[in-house]
Design a protein around this nucleic acid. Structure first.
Lengths: 195, 195
DNA sequence: AACAGGTGTTTTACTCGTAAAAAACTTCTC
DNA sequence: GAGAAGTTTTTTACGAGTAAAACACCTGTT
């Protein structure tokens, strides 16, 4: 979340008139980001804090989600990256090579190698070598692996549902739409942009 | 981003009638999350993927932001957690104890200890012991530390601005508002909820 | 005053991710 | 075909975070 946004990111007051924005629904509890933004502005009065209020909140939300979702997974003896890997195999429905798994889970090849080693030892995935190209491996879920994923998934979704229960269906749809637009742009851009 | 959401999180179609949703159109740039949601639904037709589309996108956006923002920081020789720590000192404007820094940056005490060690060696922060209670330390920015933060901050904000430039000011405000509401609830809830 | 219990900070042991190099192959080119 | 160049996966070395224990110190009670 970058010191820029610290723990919190201001509500409403984004430069746009609050008129349209769901702005400060916030009757009861302002979020942590608001305070951080306030502090930055007190120190650097000229600052344009608009981006900070979006990015800071996204980062903070992500951190809270991760923390929350780790718990149900831990009960199943899995870490999030492990579940990501198993989930990729489950949702694609077919075998994947380590490289494909790396792409699919946004992690490095080395990390995938290590996770596969552990998951194989636990009997959740199996591997077989490619017959044509002996460099590549094909990884698939075992029955136990598939059952584990299918067992976790519903409770995971139920948990996510509970976490978002504060939002009405309209807000949820709005958020999904806005985030989808943002994400499409980020994904299209960040690969091409000189970082 | 949990295997649940994998790399991408579907657009629209959040449980709300598709009428409004950007659904699958897929014209130019669908985001990665959409494909993952589609895959999950193909495998588990009954699934309520609404929450996934929000949480998956938030997680993915956060990952992309972090990756993008790391670059400018690296140029200054700092990691994000280090910058978070310095930023906390800068924006509060006064000394903080290690525990306060841990709270402020959402990290563990042990992590703060290690970072302080490095930042002290680099001459960016200083520490002094409390005179009344000799357990506690007080940490403050050195001149070099303050200058470093102030030097990085504008470029960091400019960078964030560029990254979000695809959004109109209205959308940006809407997003900030919705996220603020969500975050306020998460922060109010997740501490009290039985995880 | 002594001690039980609490708090602030650091240390220890360990896990996990990463970048870079190494291995093991394949494919292209001459 | 032999060797250069590229690919897929694994290994190695290391940096960074965490949980739990250890330290160091304070405070309230008796």
């Amino acid at each position: 979340m970058t010191a820029t946004q610290g723990p919190s990111a201001g509500d409403g007051d984004t430069g746009t008139p609050d008129t349209s924005s769901t702005a400060d629904t916030s009757a009861p509890g302002r979020d942590t980001v608001a305070e951080v933004v306030r502090q930055w502005r007190a120190v650097h009065p000229g600052l344009d804090t608009g981006p900070m209020e979006v990015i800071g909140r996204i980062n903070r939300c992500a951190a809270l989600f991760q923390q929350a979702e780790d718990a149900p997974l831990r009960r199943a003896g899995l870490t999030r990256p492990e579940f990501d890997l198993l989930g990729a195999l489950r949702r694609t429905g077919h075998e994947l090579t380590p490289s494909e798994l790396a792409r699919e889970t946004f992690s490095s090849g080395a990390a995938v190698t290590k996770r596969l080693k552990q998951l194989t030892e636990r009997g959740l995935v199996e591997r077989r070598g490619d017959t044509r190209d002996r460099r590549v491996a094909h990884v698939r879920l075992t029955d136990a692996g598939r059952e584990l994923v299918d067992g976790i998934l519903p409770s995971q979704l139920a948990y996510e549902n509970a976490v978002l229960s504060g939002l009405g269906p309209g807000e949820l749809g709005d958020l999904a739409g806005l985030l989808g637009g943002l994400l499409a742009q980020l994904e299209g851009r960040l690969t091409a942009v000189r970082v």
